[in-house]
Design a protein around this nucleic acid. Structure first.
Length: 566
DNA sequence: TAGACAGGAA
DNA sequence: TGAAATCCTGTCTA
């Protein structure tokens, strides 16, 4: 069989694409591939991508053509591209845009391109959501099925473009201010403006709804606020926690000409419903037990919202998906830094909130200087002798923790601290006992879930003001929006293969730095354990964004710390 | 009537 | 896979 060794790709029948890491065109290839395929694995020699229906539609939504993709695959494949892959690309990209939902005289219709096969009509589940056939390629559908139909059709390989528009909403005059409360001049950044334009004019599955994908610290709140100012309507904002509710409220009051009495918090301790209302996912999904209803879901229909903002949309809980399915007549804006979920429900986010309508890769923002340049290091450390015995004798479910708490990690933490002396360093980990032990040895404070607010604030402030250089934090780092930024982050343990957590933690050093604008992210991993496997998966999202981990293998009895200083 | 705290949920 | 964090509510205390 013809096999060209100079080419970079191997393509399998199931849509998996292997990219040779040492190929001279690796970087260029990676950039091309992530436009239409998902990164699945990153072992040392080949990175595996997967071409899926969703990844192809996303490419189509962002303006890519089937021909370009086929051309790219054919040009760079070591051998002949499997026919099944060519067909999938052809079929899915061509299907995109051929099915539409339209509104005529208050009724909803689905219109299909009749030059294509109408096999979707044969599907029982899809049929049950339709009302009647008007003529070939035109079906009437029940209004209440608008969301669920899109979801079902999408999952079966038929993306529908929703052009039925939105219900009338209550108007609310909002404009941006030029000067903030602290007297600073304020203007919106170009990319934030572009994101909102893309959202309002999105021509993908939903016109006028969608997900904006921006790195941590790129000012996603401002994107939401600018969208509000453009739309001039009443807004419901859903976010992940109470600190974030307060932050939205503060930002809106600071950046907009609007009376604070028009902004309401709808949380456990304060249930206001105002023209701008901010709430949490957890309140919405609260119910006493499975026999009771979600009593706060009615917030969705309590006013004529013109826009619903889903902050951190990747965290969207299952019951809110269901509610969102019924909300297709309200404009929706999703905001996220990491549109990935380990439960695979990102397709649901696409089909119910909206497709990705704007994206700025982390590395692009770095190049523009809006975020710091981060060097990622993975330090692979041998298990200590005691832990090694324990590890091999223990059942699988305990191995992750033993590897995470590997006592050899401590000496490498100390070496890294020594190497970055006088810089601001966050040590982040998963297990409280481990963190407390580290805190003990380093004589540094630790903050975890049970630390009260005064303690947290006191340490955060000391850290911000430079009175404190080392701060140890638990999983609070995944949630706390007020956790101060640092120059160096050391991850000592983490939860299984969470790509989101890895990205979140790297985000802790992204704020631009004075001088060379450089920061470091270290991930300490026990060599040849489940932790090493998990860490590969954790890194996938960041590798997709263009980060590379420089890997150092070290053994437990090494006495010199030179490996860090080269 | 505010604050503390336990218990359940996802 | 397991551990930890968060939030909401109801109850108890001062």
């Amino acid at each position: 069989m013809y096999f060209n060794d100079e080419k970079a790709l191997i393509i399998q029948e199931d849509g998996c694409v292997q990219l040779e890491v040492n190929h001279p065109d690796y970087e260029q290839m990676r950039k091309e591939l992530i436009c239409f395929a998902d990164l699945m694995k990153t072992p040392e020699q080949f990175h595996t991508f997967h071409i899926t229906n969703t990844s192809l539609w996303n490419a189509a939504a962002m303006g890519k053509k089937a021909e370009e993709i086929k051309q790219f695959l054919t040009t760079h494949c070591k051998m002949k591209v499997p026919l099944s892959v060519i067909q999938q690309v052809q079929k899915m990209m061509h299907r995109y845009g051929t099915l539409q939902i339209n509104k005529e005289n208050e009724s909803l219709y689905i219109n299909a391109d009749t030059s294509l096969e109408q096999d979707w009509v044969q599907d029982k589940e899809i049929r049950s959501l339709l009302e009647e056939e008007i003529k070939e390629g035109k079906w009437k559908l029940k209004k209440q099925n608008r969301g669920i139909l899109k979801k079902v059709m999408t999952s079966k390989g038929y993306p529908v473009i929703d052009k039925a528009g939105y219900d009338d909403s209550e108007q609310l005059p909002i404009s941006l201010r030029d000067v903030t409360n602290s007297g600073e001049m304020f203007h919106i950044r170009d990319y934030q403006k572009e994101a909102v334009e893309a959202f309002l004019n999105s021509k993908n599955i939903f016109s006028g709804s969608g997900v904006v994908h921006l790195p941590c610290g790129a000012g996603k709140t401002m994107v939401g606020i600018y969208a509000m100012a453009k739309l001039q309507c009443e807004v419901l904002i859903l976010t992940s926690n109470k600190t974030s509710v307060k932050q939205w409220k503060r930002e809106i009051a600071d950046k907009c000409n609007i009376s604070t009495s028009a902004i309401g918090e709808y949380t456990g301790d304060n249930k206001q419903i105002k023209p701008i209302t901010i709430s949490t996912y957890q309140l919405l999904t609260y119910r006493r037990d499975k026999q009771h209803d979600f009593k706060h879901m009615k917030l969705f229909s309590s006013r004529k919202w013109g826009l619903i903002i889903y902050d951190e949309v990747h965290l969207l809980p299952a019951p809110v998906f269901r509610a969102t399915a019924d909300l297709q007549a309200t404009r929706r804006l999703g905001l996220t830094a990491t549109l990935i979920r380990e439960d695979g429900r990102e397709t649901d986010v696409f089909s119910l909130v909206g497709h990705k309508c704007y994206e700025l890769h982390w590395k692009e923002l770095e190049a523009k200087g809006w975020i710091a340049k981060v060097q990622c290091h993975e330090v692979r450390i041998d298990l200590s002798e005691a832990d090694q015995k324990l590890y091999w004798e223990s059942a699988a479910k305990y191995k992750h923790r033993i590897a995470g708490e590997n006592s050899n990690k401590l000496q490498y933490i100390q070496r890294i601290l020594h190497h970055h002396a006088h810089q601001k360093i966050l040590i982040i980990g998963q297990y409280i006992t481990q963190l407390e032990h580290i805190a003990d040895v380093l004589k540094a404070p630790v903050i975890h879930g049970k630390s009260n607010n005064e303690t947290r604030e006191a340490y955060y402030n000391a850290f911000k003001q430079g009175k404190l250089n080392i701060l140890i934090v638990s999983k609070v780092a995944n949630f706390a929006v007020d956790l101060p930024n640092a120059t160096v982050a050391i991850q000592v343990s983490g939860s299984f293969g969470s790509r989101q957590e890895e990205a979140q933690r790297l985000g802790r050093v992204l704020r631009p730095k004075k001088g060379d604008n450089e920061a470091h992210f270290y991930s300490l991993v026990s060599k040849d354990t489940v932790e090493q496997e998990n860490s590969m998966h954790r890194q996938l999202f960041l590798v997709e964004q263009g980060y590379t981990y420089d890997i150092k293998e070290v053994s437990g009895d090494e006495k010199d710390g030179m490996y860090l200083v080269q």
